[in-house]
Design a protein around this nucleic acid. Structure first.
Lengths: 140, 140
DNA sequence: CTCATTGCAAAGGTTTTGCATGACC
DNA sequence: GGTCATGCAAAACCTTTGCAATGAG
């Protein structure tokens, strides 16, 4: 999503548009590494030396609320965030801890199966895979 | 797994067998609610008033290590634990926060698809579903 | 008897909150 | 100008660690 659309969406939902909010979304939109709040904070330090971690958390809360980011729980102590809000599987390297997307996988059949088996009314899902990434395999 | 087997496994792996350890495993083995450390702690308070949360955490660490429990990450701030170590999907009610198993689902086809699409060497996975449980649907 | 385990309290890490200052509209 | 957002510091959580006292083998 481009900056203008983010600006519009924030306004539309009653939130003010600030450089911090745009910068935080920008970091998320331009990376594939699924950063944690602290990773976002560190990345912004150079250009926004006064940025505080609290602002990162507060902004993510808003971005989540208006559907611009999704939250990941890959089994670490902290959460990670993804500006690609379409649901897709993630995979984490047990060695270097990187988190990647698994692309081009159609999970609708699997989700259908679950719908048949559960008495819940489904609203969403997250698929996490664990393994060793290509780079780490080479090293061992 | 019965108490005798747990005793044997602990000894075999070089850990001492204590009432606390057996009690913690027992709580996990007898419930389907995927308790957090604090839920286990609270449940034990009545019968083991001196039990400390630290012991719960230390014991879970050991149980995890010897393959008697698996750790769940359902998107809460805390971890949950499951004495059923065979991999199976979990589902969480967004209203009452309960976590249930999804039973009788074969996910091997889906996992195969992922293996084909990722360059990682797969070692495991977790499937989390979100929705509204039957009880909460009735209430609304 | 020895050494691992327990349980307390303190520390560590992540996330949230309160509040005065500052910025947007 | 009024109100919301920022950023600091403190608080609130969850989890881990250190250590003296205790208990298992």
């Amino acid at each position: 999503m481009d900056e203008q659309s983010v600006t519009n969406l924030l306004r539309e939902k009653g939130f003010k548009v600030t450089p911090q909010r745009l910068a935080i979304y920008d970091v998320l939109a331009k990376t594939k590494e699924h950063p944690s709040a602290e990773m976002i904070f560190n990345q912004l330090q150079e250009y926004y030396p006064t940025m505080s971690l609290a602002t990162v958390y507060k902004t993510i809360e808003i971005l989540k609320e208006i559907g611009l980011v999704q939250v990941l729980n890959v089994g670490e102590d902290s959460f990670r965030y993804d500006a690609i809000v379409e649901n897709h599987p993630h995979i984490r390297c047990m060695v270097c801890k990187r988190v990647d997307d698994v692309e081009e996988v159609d999970s609708s059949d699997f989700i259908e199966k679950i719908k048949e088996k559960t008495a819940y009314q489904l609203t969403g899902q997250q698929f996490y895979f664990y393994g060793i990434c290509p780079k780490c395999m080479v090293k061992h």
